[in-house]
Nucleic acid binder design. Structure first.
Lengths: 157, 157
DNA sequence: GATATTTGCTTGACCAATCAAGCTCCGGTT
DNA sequence: AACCGGAGCTTGATTGGTCAAGCAAATATC
C-alpha cells in the first residue's frame, strides 16, 4: 500500500499557518512603514539611515565598502549607489584606502553625524511603536535567538 | 532642571536590540531564500506562486484584481504585471467581470492549477525548513497574534 | 436623461535594487 | 621586473516593484 504522505506532505497546522501569514504581512508592512515614518519625519530613507548608523558605530566613523554593504544587507553595487546618494548630500565622503589603493572608505562627515543624531529618535520611536510594543511580556532574548537561527540561511541546496 | 530624556530618549535594551537586528536580517533573508528555493526547484518565483495559491483557494478559482492584489500584498499595478506574466505562461486567464464591466477576474487555468500542485510541496518544505523549524517549543498562536498586531500598520501620522 | 464624479484597472515614467561586465590595483610566480 | 590571476569597487543593463495619469464603465446629481 503506497504511502500517501510521500505525494502529499502534511499541511501546516492552523497555528503554523497563521504565524506564516502574519510574518508575511509583517515582512511586507514593517520596512515600508518605518521608512515612511523616517521620510515623513526627517526626510531620511531607511536605507540611508542604516548606512549612516553603521558608519557611526565604528571608532573612526569609516568603513570599507564591502563590510558596510554586508551590514546594510545590500549588494556591493547597491552600497555604491547608496553612498553616492549620501555623498551628494554631503553626509558621507569617500577616501581611498591607505593600505590598499583598490579599496575605498566611506567616511561619515560631521554633517552626516549631525543628520543621524537628528534622525535616530525618530527611528527608535518607529521601531518601538510598530514592532516592540507588540511583544511586551515575551521572552525577547529567546525570540531573538530563534530569529537569528532563521536569519542564518543555509544556501539553496 | 531640564529633563534629559526629552532630548535623548531611552535607547533599546540589549535584548530589544538583538531582536530588532535579527528581525531585520530575517526580513531580508527569508523571502529571498524561499524564492530562490522555489525558482531552483520548480522555476516558480514566490510572487507568482502566491498569486496562484490565492486564486486556488477561492471556490471557483477566480478573483477580482483588487482583492487578489490585497492578498498578495501588491499594488494594483504590480498585480496587473504579475498576472500578465502568468497569463503569457498560460497559468491564468483574464475574463471581464459579469456584474461590472469595468472589472476583471483573474482565473486559474487547469495548467495553472497543475503547476501549483507541483510547486506547493516545495514551498511548504522551504517554509518549514527555513522558518518554522526554528520555533519549535514556542507558543505559535500567541506569536501569530503578536505578528498580526505588528502587521496591521497604522498609517504614518 | 445628460453631465459630473467615482471606481476598476492598465499604462507610462520612475526608482532602488540586482547581476554581469569592466577597470584598477595587489600579490605571487617566474 | 614583467606577467597573470584574483580582489575591490564601479558602471551598464535589467528587473520587479511603486506612484501618477489615463481610460472606460458605473453611479450619483441635477
Amino acid at each position: 500500500m503506497p504511502n500517501p504522505s510521500a505525494a502529499t506532505p502534511q499541511p501546516l497546522t492552523p497555528d503554523e499557518e497563521s504565524l506564516v501569514r502574519a510574518l508575511g504581512q509583517v515582512m511586507h508592512v514593517l520596512p515600508r512603514a518605518i521608512d515612511a515614518d523616517m521620510v515623513g519625519d526627517r526626510q531620511l530613507p531607511l536605507t540611508e539611515y542604516t548606512a549612516l548608523m553603521n558608519l557611526s558605530e565604528t571608532p573612526d566613523r569609516r568603513m570599507r565598502m564591502n563590510e558596510l554593504a554586508a551590514l546594510c544587507y545590500l549588494s556591493l553595487s547597491g552600497m555604491t549607489r547608496t553612498i553616492i546618494r549620501l555623498e551628494t548630500q554631503g553626509l558621507v565622503r569617500r577616501e581611498r584606502c591607505e593600505e590598499d589603493a583598490r579599496g575605498w572608505n566611506a567616511v561619515l562627515t560631521d554633517a552626516g553625524y549631525a543628520r543621524l543624531q537628528e534622525a535616530w529618535p525618530s527611528h527608535l520611536a518607529a521601531v518601538r511603536r510598530r514592532f516592540l510594543q507588540h511583544f511586551e511580556g515575551f521572552d525577547l532574548a529567546q525570540l531573538a535567538r530563534a530569529f537569528q537561527r532563521a536569519g542564518t540561511a543555509e544556501p539553496t541546496d
